[in-house]
Amino acid sequence: MDSSRRRILQLLGISALALTTRPVLDAFAKEQQATGADVIIKEGDKVLKARQWAMVIDTRKLHSEAELEPLIEACHTIHNVPKLLNKNHEIKWLWGTHYHNAFPGKAARFIAEEVEQRPFLVLCNHCENPPCVRACPTKATWKRDNDGIVFMDFHRCIGCRFCMAACPFGARSFNYRDPRPFIQETNKKFPTRMKGVVEKCNFCAERLAVGQIPACVEVSKGALAFGDLYDPKSEVRELIRTHFTIRRKQTLGTEPCVYYIV
């Protein structure tokens, strides 16, 4: 190839590059305007705050699947969690299971009959050291520094499901298909999800932001308690101090924030 042609091609390439950078820079500049000096973006006044939200579940007060049902219903309805009939596609934020499934390592050969029959409520543990957050390649799931909730950005999730493999509690679900047709009653205040993203319990962050406690706690008639793990005067700390509590798979070092009174 003769050198002048090569030279012209190089020049064309460089100028094309220069031309395309302009719109990109403009787009960034515009985003600056949306947040510019005359605009304030802030938290609401009623927001509930904590260093690390935690939950205590008094399993002695929840005797049967039927007693769990209102809690699960409350959660799944306000968060638009679909009811899929195909077990493979199932989506669960909060559900009941047996003691030996909730605590596979701790199931003794002989165990109190009543405990064996009691349903155990399981959900995302909002671990202090969450392996799912370590795994996510896009920061679509992360631990919030303001309250320790393991949160998800459904806009950013690419659906690689690495977080699902990383979670030792099976807390995460994936939208194997469009969930919308399977939502019985849509809560218009909360978004649904689209196919191809992962979801899980968010400790009702949207309710905490407006001064309400999580929905499951609210309807639990005192079986569930919610509060700041690092506030010695909080209800959860009080319960942990006065009762013997266990956590799921504590040996893995993820530091779950859901405590169980058995």
């Binding site: 795994a135 996510c136 390649p137 999730c157 690419i158 659906g159 690689c160 690495f162 992962v198």
Partner: peptide, 26 residues
């Protein structure tokens, strides 16, 4: 195969847009 496995393949570039050094997938 990775692309085919993604739930939201159109967002694959998020891996580069938000590089996450603690993720083995990155």
């Amino acid at each position: 195969f990775i692309l085919v496995d993604l739930g939201q393949p159109m967002r694959a570039f998020n891996v580069l847009l938000y590089p996450t050094l603690n993720s083995v997938l990155f």
